[in-house]
Design a protein around this nucleic acid. Structure first.
Lengths: 131, 131
DNA sequence: ACTGAGGGTGAGAACCGATTTCACTCCGTA
DNA sequence: TACGGAGTGAAATCGGTTCTCACCCTCAGT
């Protein structure tokens, strides 16, 4: 599954494995990834995990998501763009199937004279359990 | 202009004045707000500014915006919802006229069984100057 | 006026995630 | 073997945010 990325240092590969293991809805923080990575590679340091995430993000293999109102960023495997929902009650983060239409993005970029490379859509509110 | 909020402690009022002074495109960080507030009220402390922003956010008078990839949150007067654009080159933040259509939000909320209270849309890329 | 309670306030410490530093290891090549 | 560059772990550091705590100010009830 992670075979799409070549020539990765072993620890970075471990990080990638952990993120992909969690899947698109995983929403792992760097801390959580570190904990899981240590199960595979007990001597791995937090700094290495962090560097790995940065590298993998640059390579486009993982997405870094800054959820509005959340202290720490979460990571998940690169996948089709989608929005996120954060419950203000329990703090849970879930995926929503939404992306700003490509045509709209293009028109916005043109109108404001900018080049848009990425979008982040976050909704907040109450989930079913927290009513 | 800040007359819509009543019964505010004096320092919080100062904070509100600063934010509204900067206007919708101000995008001030808490630090910047503190600096400007001291021009009006030299003895005001940072903690007070921060508490004021929290209070004003609860009251709905100011918006707190967590820009993706930005270290600190920025604040601006409550206004019609709009998206933000952050240039990865110079770090500038600007407003874009976009909001997720209300009908779409409603449909998403219904489909996933959640109550959506707020949305945050952030684009990142390169501004005209940073090409 | 006096008094007690409660909110507001300033300074600085504490906190926490993210990032950097630094010395060390590993592995390839010459 | 000697060298150099990348990778690595532990710990220090950073920066924004939040908390603590002692003080002050206002105001209601006397």
């Amino acid at each position: 599954m992670s075979s799409t990325v070549q020539g990765l240092p072993p620890n970075y590969r471990t990080v990638l494995d952990v993120v992909e293991e969690a899947g698109p809805g995983g929403h792992l923080t760097a801390q959580e990834i570190w904990v899981r990575a240590r199960a595979l590679q007990p001597r791995i340091g937090f700094a290495t995990v962090h560097r790995g995430l940065i590298r993998l993000h640059e390579l486009g293999a993982v997405m870094k998501i800054d959820v509005s109102g959340e202290a720490s960023a979460v990571y998940e495997p690169a996948a089709s763009p989608h929005a996120h929902f954060r419950c203000t009650g329990c703090g849970a983060i879930s995926d929503l199937e939404y992306a700003v239409p490509a045509q709209t993005v293009r028109r916005l970029a043109e109108r404001h004279g900018v080049a848009i490379e990425r979008e982040a859509v976050t909704f907040t509110g109450r989930c079913a359990n927290c009513g």
